[in-house]
C-alpha cells in the first residue's frame, strides 16, 4: 500500500507569540517549530498501516526551508521518502491554495491512502485534507480514530460529538484526517535518525507544480483576543495568591 502523509510545521504549542510589524501575522524569527500534533498521529497511523500491509510511506510537506527539520524527523521515525514543496510564505496562500499544491504533488504518486491531521495548531482551519480529496476526486472522512484496510476497502472509526462514534466504509483511494491521541506516538531511534540522512527528499516549487494561486480569504489583522469576563488575577507568591483565592471563593463568589 502506498500512503502519503501530509505534515505541516507549526510553532511550538507553548510559544509566546508577538504580532509582526505588518499586524497581519506573528513574528516568526524568534520561534521554534515542530510537527503539527495531529499530523504526528497521521504519520503514526501511516507507519502502523505499512507495518501491517507493507508498502511505502511518503511524507509530503509544504513550507519554507526550516520545514526540512520536520521532514527529517518524519523520515527518522520511519517514512520512506519525502516531498518538500518549497514555499517561502505559506500564509500568502489560503487553504485552497495550499491544498492545490498538496494535491498537485500527490497526484502523480497515485497513492492508495492520503492521511493528514484533522487540523493545524496554528491556523486551525481543519480543511486541508477534505479539500485535497475533492481536488483529487476521491472520497474522504474526517476526525478518524482508526482505520482498517481489507480488499481495497477501508473501514474507519470516525469520532462524532459527545462521546459517539461511527464506522464508515469507503473504496480506496481515500483521504483521512486523523484525530490526535488515537495511537501512541513512536520516538525516532538512533538507527532511524542515521538512516534518514540517506532517504530521498524531493524538492519541488509551486511554479513547477503549476498551481500558483492567491488567497481568496485574507487575514487583515491579527490581535490579542477580547476578554469575555472580568478576571481577577493573582500573581506573585503562590502562598499569598492561594490564600487570596480561597478568600474570594468563600466571601465573594460564596461557593465554598
Amino acid at each position: 500500500m502506498k500512503i502519503i502523509v501530509a505534515i505541516k510545521q507549526v510553532p511550538l504549542r507553548d510559544s509566546h507569540f508577538r504580532i509582526a510589524a505588518s499586524g497581519k501575522w506573528i513574528e516568526e524569527s524568534d520561534l521554534s517549530f515542530e510537527i503539527n500534533e495531529p499530523d504526528a498521529y497521521a504519520l503514526e497511523e501511516a507507519l502502523q498501516l505499512r507495518e501491517k500491509h507493507g508498502g511505502e510511506v511518503i511524507a509530503l510537506c509544504a513550507g519554507p526551508e526550516r520545514a526540512q527539520q520536520t521532514i527529517r524527523d518524519a523520515l527518522a521515525k520511519g517514512a520512506d521518502r519525502a516531498i518538500h514543496i518549497e514555499t517561502q510564505d505559506l500564509n500568502a496562500l489560503d487553504t485552497l491554495g495550499v491544498a492545490q499544491l498538496l494535491a498537485a504533488a500527490a497526484k502523480p504518486e497515485q497513492a492508495d491512502l492520503i492521511l493528514t491531521g484533522l487540523q493545524s495548531d496554528d491556523l486551525g482551519a481543519g480543511q486541508t485534507g477534505v479539500v485535497v480529496a475533492e481536488l483529487l476526486g476521491i472520497p474522504h472522512s474526517t476526525i478518524i480514530m482508526q482505520a482498517e484496510v481489507r480488499d481495497r476497502v477501508i473501514r474507519v472509526k470516525r469520532e462524532l460529538e459527545n462521546g459517539w462514534f461511527q464506522h464508515i466504509e469507503m473504496p480506496l483511494p481515500v483521504v483521512l484526517t486523523i484525530q490526535s491521541g488515537s495511537n501512541k506516538l513512536r520516538y525516532a531511534t538512533l538507527m532511524g535518525i542515521k538512516k534518514a540522512k540517506n532517504k530521498e527528499v524531493k524538492r519541488i516549487t509551486p511554479a513547477e507544480l503549476g498551481a500558483e494561486s492567491s488567497a481568496a480569504a485574507k487575514i487583515e489583522k491579527i490581535y490579542a483576543p477580547q476578554k469575555s469576563k472580568q478576571t481577577q488575577i493573582f500573581e506573585g507568591d503562590p502562598k499569598a495568591a492561594a490564600a487570596q483565592l480561597v478568600e474570594k471563593l468563600k466571601f465573594e463568589a460564596r461557593v465554598l
Binding site: 504549542r13 507569540f17 496554528d122 486551525g124 490581535y223 490579542a224 483576543p225
Partner: peptide
C-alpha cells in the same frame, strides 16, 4: 488562531 491565543479579522 493558535488554539485561541490570538484572534484575526
Amino acid at each position: 488562531f493558535f488554539q485561541g491565543k490570538l484572534s484575526g479579522d
